[in-house]
Design a protein around this nucleic acid. Structure first.
Length: 279
DNA sequence: CTATAGACCTGACGGC
DNA sequence: TGCCGTCAGGTCTATA
């Protein structure tokens, strides 16, 4: 699942292929991928445009075009961007960004959740996101302040993109494990010391995952077609029933907000009195 | 403002 | 062999 480290890797590895080259045409094999504008407008405003910059914001990938427009992509759960040539596109290819250097960027997405949109102003799409967790706007003080106002389970709150841009299910589980915090703990019941531990854990988990080029647990592949390796060092995420690397206890999986949450019942003890569980 | 459920999608996998 | 339920889960919208 592409989260911050995966999108960061895609951006880094796509960068040398796109900067300075121009889009000759974007083929939409499944029109539903396009949010806005209409396909006709979209083609008219992307054809011939030079790519001036490529950025990541949260889990969004942003191409800034010579015209001043922004092409904004989101891979959601099953999307990946793969560099290709002229051979027939593989199954699940939903769009092809054709560049004038002969290279193609294939947008693969089996589950059709991914999106693409062209906007004049990126603010409307990106401004609702909270701070980047690896940049200076994200501080322990900020996290203490914001978590103190939220009573929902910390796991659910960590996934709120208005709080931390780019956090996703896998890395939220890993960060909570590293900080020794049970995922159901109400956010406003964490002590400042615990929030500081969580702050450090979030940044550590994301940095390590970027160094390993992201995690390939299902569909995610890097632009060159290679998998990332961050999943090999997961302690709890997607490891239900397997032994905790610290204490050996079986990793548990519980649904929180309809999302699988993996944790170690011994290393992340539940401090909620019986009867109060049941969000 | 916060919180939560449902919708959007399709494939892999396990049980019978 | 096939059928069914579960799991994967980011974000938007509606509702309280």
């Amino acid at each position: 699942m592409p989260e911050l480290p995966e999108v960061e890797t895609v951006k880094n590895e796509l960068l040398p292929h796109v900067i300075g080259s121009s889009i000759s045409h974007i083929t939409l094999l499944w029109e539903g991928i396009l949010r806005q504008p209409s396909p006709a407008e979209f083609h008219r405003h992307t054809a011939g445009q030079r790519v001036a910059g490529l950025y990541r914001r949260g889990k969004y990938l942003v191409f800034s075009l010579q015209s001043g427009d922004f092409l904004i992509l989101h891979l959601k759960m099953s999307g990946s961007l793969i560099m290709g040539g002229d051979s027939p596109p593989p199954k699940y290819t939903r769009a092809i960004i054709r560049l004038d250097n002969g290279r193609n960027i294939l947008f693969l997405d089996p589950r059709k959740f991914g999106t693409m949109q062209l906007v004049e102003d990126s603010v409307k799409v990106l401004d609702k996101l909270g701070p980047e967790p690896l940049e200076s706007g994200f501080t322990a003080e900020y996290l203490v302040k914001r978590l103190g106002k939220r009573h929902a389970p910390i796991k659910a709150v960590l996934l709120d993109q208005k709080l931390i841009a780019g956090m996703g299910n896998m890395y939220a589980d890993e960060a909570l494990f590293l900080a020794g915090i049970h995922p159901l703990t109400p956010a406003d019941r964490l002590s400042p010391a615990e929030v500081r531990r969580l702050y450090d854990a979030i940044r550590q988990v994301l940095k390590e995952a970027i160094a390993k080029k992201g995690a390939s647990v299902s569909n995610y592949l890097r632009p060159g077609g290679q998998p990332g390796t961050a999943q090999t060092s997961f302690k709890v995420a997607h490891r239900g029933g397997k032994p905790c690397p610290t204490c050996g206890a079986a990793i548990e999986r519980i649904p929180i907000r309809n999302r699988g949450s993996y944790f170690c019942p011994l290393c992340q003890p539940n401090r909620i009195p019986a009867g109060q569980i049941g969000n």
